[in-house]
Design a binder for these strands. Structure first.
Lengths: 248, 248
DNA sequence: CGTTTTCTTGACAGGGATCAACACTAGTGG
DNA sequence: CCACTAGTGTTGATCCCTGTCAAGAAAACG
């Protein structure tokens, strides 16, 4: 069974067996991180980037008044710093929402792999594009979707993203986060998350018990979420990457 | 007088006269875009990226219900697709908020320049980091700042960004956008923007007339905005860029 | 100078926050 | 194995921030 990032990157480009082996080989230095601990607390090492093998993590920010906003969610198979080489003098912490298995990918290995294997390169660009789009669509949610729409959108996004790494079966998947986490993700209060959730369950579109989400009517959920597949279904075909703008 | 992008990138690395000349030379193909016209309507050409020489632009998204959210703002000196080479099969449109002068930078030229001149490379990475951080902090605004705080934050951000390109004099700068634009930027209604603006003016912290913003008490504004300089003052020193994660 | 866009103001409604209490679950240690 | 504790989910009551609708004033524009 291939690990999550291999499963995910397969969706971005057709990978040969060799390339998949290379990809698996990158994830050598694996460490465990307990829930609610920071993976990186302030900026990231320039030498390697964290890859989530298992569990959920997030990039977040806590304001002076104590309010927390989750900026992006990292699921199994996600590279937490997709702008990999970006030297950060400062940055937002990345925290574990659940117990984590994290692989630290040495940047040298990663860029060598990308250089040697065009399909791998393509897949990594695809991953970057996807990550960027997710952030943008998250902004649209926070700015212009109602609480209910945000919830619905989140479930659609999770359905889409977790499908990429084979963690969805029959429109059912695990959601190992608290309602308070969801609140910080959606810019709501946890009380309101609770109520929206109940309303969504009451409508028969989903059910959620024991951190287990089941989507009964996917299309109804997408409608409610103002989901536009144009933005997230990239399909299988992605043009080859041109040279990077800022690449030395 | 150097053009805006040169002024901006100077802040990211020390550039030699030669490097500045190269940078200026990149902006050959200059075109004018009238206000309210799209610069790119669906995705971007793979061959070149737009650079704003003059005027304000934005990346935005319109939901099916007609609501618009501005995802990022582009000011003079900004490269609209800082992920330059990113091949987009889909994407959000970029629109002109004011009449624009746009230079289309050929990607080949850009990456050759970055390859040949390390400081230029460093500056472009710095620019990318800055852009990324602005988006993240925008999410925090939308999710966890009140209307008043968002307004204040926006003015702080603009003060910071426009200072980079020498468009601020004595805490005064032009704001050539309508209140409806601000509303779509901050995830508010235009009516509420109007009222927040008046309250802010009434408090004596700013004045705004004829699209001319004057900040009277910068520190008060920063306090109100929950402004954290850690996230946006990168200072002059930035570590050298490592090789890109997904660079072929 | 008329026309259109933008700004401003008022009245009203509602979505979501806040506060507070209680139930439930899970983990902990005796 | 059970009591204890802490975290999480649930509910009700209340408030207020912000959206919506509508109309008039001011400014921009051709």
């Amino acid at each position: 069974m291939a690990s999550a990032h291999v499963l995910k990157l397969r969706k971005g480009a057709h990978l040969s067996a060799t390339e998949e082996a290379v990809l698996s080989g990158l994830a050598q230095r694996v460490i465990a991180v307990p829930a609610r601990r920071d993976v990186v607390s302030d900026g990231t090492s320039t030498r390697s980037v964290p890859l989530i093998l298992d569990g959920w993590a997030c990039r977040y920010r806590v304001l002076e008044n104590g309010k927390r906003q989750i900026i992006s969610l990292f699921l199994p198979g996600d590279i937490c710093e997709p702008f990999g080489a970006l030297p950060r003098v400062t940055g937002y912490p990345i925290g574990a929402l659940t117990p984590l298995r994290v692989a630290w990918l040495p940047l040298e290995d990663l860029s060598r792999a990308a250089r040697d294997y065009p399909s791998l390169n393509k897949a990594l660009w695809w991953d970057l594009l996807l990550t960027e789009t997710l952030v943008h669509e998250g902004m649209v949610s926070l700015g212009r979707r109602s609480a209910m729409e945000r919830m619905a959108y989140l479930f659609c996004e999770l359905h889409f993203r977790l499908s990429l790494v084979d963690l969805v079966r029959d429109d059912v998947f695990d959601m190992p986060v608290t309602q308070a986490d969801i609140a910080d993700l959606l810019g709501l209060s946890s009380v309101h998350v609770n109520r929206s959730l109940q309303e969504l369950r009451g409508s028969g579109i989903i059910s959620l018990r024991w951190q287990h989400l089941e989507i009964h009517r996917v299309s109804a959920l997408c409608d409610l979420a103002l989901w536009d597949p144009i933005y997230l279904d990239f399909g299988d075909v992605v043009p080859m990457a041109a040279p990077g703008a800022a690449t030395g």
